[in-house]
């Protein structure tokens, strides 16, 4: 049996990788994929704790997280397509219309 702490630490590591992706990369699509990694890390923690606690509520919650992630990807990619059409780039350093 693998201790649940292993899964939780793996989840923390994956979440950090996602955060670093968002902070370091400037390509909007890669930033988006990093957000997916973070969502997956949270899901992994949910499932690990659901298994350790013997409750299936965590699995149901992951189901909703997946649905929200799907909605987020659809809208987010549509925004990226619209920005790329208007600005000709998806480099987040170049997209500064709302910046003071």
């Amino acid at each position: 049996m693998v201790p649940v702490a292993n899964y939780l630490i793996l989840s923390a590591v994956l979440f950090t990788i996602g955060v670093l992706g968002v902070l370091i990369r400037r390509n909007a699509i890669v930033i988006f994929m990093s957000i997916e990694i973070m969502l997956n890390a949270a899901n992994l923690a949910f499932i690990a704790l659901a298994d350790a606690k013997g409750s299936l509520a965590g699995q149901v919650f992951v189901f909703f997280v997946l649905a929200v992630a799907a909605a987020e990807v659809a809208v987010g990619l549509a925004i990226i397509v619209a920005i790329s059409r208007q600005q000709g780039t998806i480099d987040v350093d170049e997209i500064n219309l709302l910046k003071w």
């Binding site: 990694i37 899901n43 992994l44």
Partner: peptide
């Protein structure tokens, strides 16, 4: 990455997810 995490879900008895 997503497939690997899916395998971890199976290891954690979450086959549907």
């Amino acid at each position: 990455h997503l497939l690997a995490v899916a395998v971890l879900f199976v290891l954690l008895n979450a086959q549907l997810i």
